[in-house]
């Protein structure tokens, strides 16, 4: 199975753990991810709040860069995934938008035919394209005894319908059931982490983060698994500040779901990017997974 691969800016540096674990897991599953040459930033939400056509054109450049031998583009970051898919949809449904975006692309000598690239999220690829049997087949270290809270966030499951349920998604739950983990009922699993609001308003964003951490703790989860760099950053890097702000004492490791898939597949934690999280996951892994986990 071959896919074009769009890591996105976050995965380059601040969420490199996501990138390495996605690549490692994909490799093991026989999924070939070919990184898009010279991709550019998807603009997150920031271009959209200034100029719609610029936002769409900046995103569409990446779609236009996809080599014709690929018809699917995998983007692990939620914002990148949504932006790429959304622009493709907009161009498909609104001929006027298609015309204008292509006019802009033409200024860079590019062209994009809407609908020619299907944008995919890595969770959906593993769940739907690889499937249960092949995933179970690769498990060497079942995650038995580990309680995980699957956290989907917003932009992979909304507004585009199709990857999973928009309100109560379950694909990650199922995936981790295949891996032997105990998946807790995590009612806030598709609630918002605050997105870029951490950069703007502490009061507003910290409360959103608190709710999620609280809900995970109430569900007695050992760790929260993310599928979006922003979610991971907000819950992990801001955890201590949230504790200070509300005078609480959360200590919940937040890792990317692919990192834990890698663990179950027997890949060593270091090459999955463990150690980069601010709230260390190692104590939990060691306690719950029979002390077998050692950092190389």
């Amino acid at each position: 199975m071959k896919y074009a691969y769009y890591p996105g800016c976050s995965l380059e540096v601040n969420s490199a753990a996501y990138d390495v674990s996605v690549r490692a897991v994909a490799d093991l599953l026989g999924v070939k991810l070919m990184e898009l040459d010279d991709w550019n930033c998807c603009g997150a939400t920031e271009y959209f709040s200034q100029n719609e056509l610029t936002a769409c054109s900046v995103i569409a450049r990446n779609l236009a860069l996809v080599d014709s031998q690929y018809d699917q583009l995998v983007a692990p970051c939620a914002a990148c995934y949504l932006n790429l898919a959304k622009v493709d949809n907009l161009m498909t449904e609104h001929p006027d938008m298609n015309r204008q975006v292509n006019e802009c692309l033409a200024a860079g000598g590019l062209k994009y035919e809407p609908g020619s690239v299907r944008v995919r999220h890595i969770l959906d690829v593993i769940y739907s394209d690889i499937g249960e049997a092949a995933v179970r087949d690769k498990v060497v270290k079942p995650l038995a005894g580990l309680k995980i809270a699957p956290y989907y966030g917003c932009q992979v499951v909304r507004p585009l319908k199709g990857v999973d349920d928009t309100e109560y998604p379950t694909k990650m739950d199922e995936l981790f059931a295949w891996l032997g983990a105990e998946v807790v009922d995590f009612p806030a699993k598709a609630h918002c982490c605050g997105g870029h609001m951490t950069q703007i308003s502490d009061a507003q964003s910290f409360e959103l983060i608190r709710r999620l951490l609280q809900n995970a703790e109430d569900s007695e989860a050992d760790m929260i698994l993310c599928m979006c760099p922003m979610c991971q950053l907000n819950l992990d890097a801001y955890q201590s500040r949230v504790n200070n702000y509300f005078n609480l004492n959360f200590k919940i490791p937040i890792v990317f779901f692919t990192q834990m898939v890698g663990i179950a597949f027997g890949i060593d934690p270091k090459s999955l990017g463990f150690g980069k999280e601010l709230v260390s996951a190692m104590p939990v892994l060691q306690a719950k997974l029979n002390g077998k986990m050692v950092m190389a």
């Binding site: 100029n51 054109s57 900046v58 450049r61 204008q100 006019e103």
Partner: peptide, 14 residues
């Protein structure tokens, strides 16, 4: 350069 040309065009059109 290519990206900047695209952005320039987009701003111009909008």
């Amino acid at each position: 350069d290519q990206l900047q040309a695209i952005i320039k065009k987009a701003k111009e059109l909008s």
